[in-house]
Structure formats: structure tokens, C-alpha cells
Amino acid sequence: MDELKKLLATVLNIDYEKVDDSLSRETTEEWDSFNHLMLMSEIEKEFQISFSLQEIEEARSYSDIRTLILDKKQ
């Protein structure tokens, strides 16, 4: 999940090391709705998966997203 961490760090403008399970839309000011959309569409490209609109709207944290990706990649 290095790639995911890297993407989060770039989009949210935070250090790579700070990306951990406590990272969520509630705790991170930079994680606004536009950055969220940009993030999710970059993830789709990077991991070659497709999210539903509902999945995009409901993903709220690093761990949510990681779980989503792992599910889809299985």
C-alpha cells in the first residue's frame, strides 16, 4: 500500500510518514471534497479499479480506502 500512502501524501500535502490509520477526512483539513474526488480518481487509475459513486462518497479515511482497494483487488 506504499502507492496509496504516496498518493495520499501528495494530494493532502502531508508527510508520507504521517499517513496512518488515524488519517481521515475529519482529522485532516486538506482533505476537502475536491481533494477527495481527485484522490479517488487517481486511485482508480493507479490500481486499475473502479469505485461506485456510493463508495466514493462513503470512503472517509485511509483505512476505508485501503479496505476498498484490497476488496477490489482480490
Partner: peptide
């Protein structure tokens, strides 16, 4: 158009 971004945020041009 990236349809997801279009429906979610009215983006009418793919980023």
C-alpha cells in the same frame, strides 16, 4: 468527461 466527477461535482472537463 470523467462521469463520476461530472455527477459528483459537475466537472465537465476531465482533469
Amino acid at each position: 468527461i470523467n462521469y463520476k466527477l461530472y455527477y459528483l461535482a459537475d466537472l465537465k472537463l476531465n482533469l
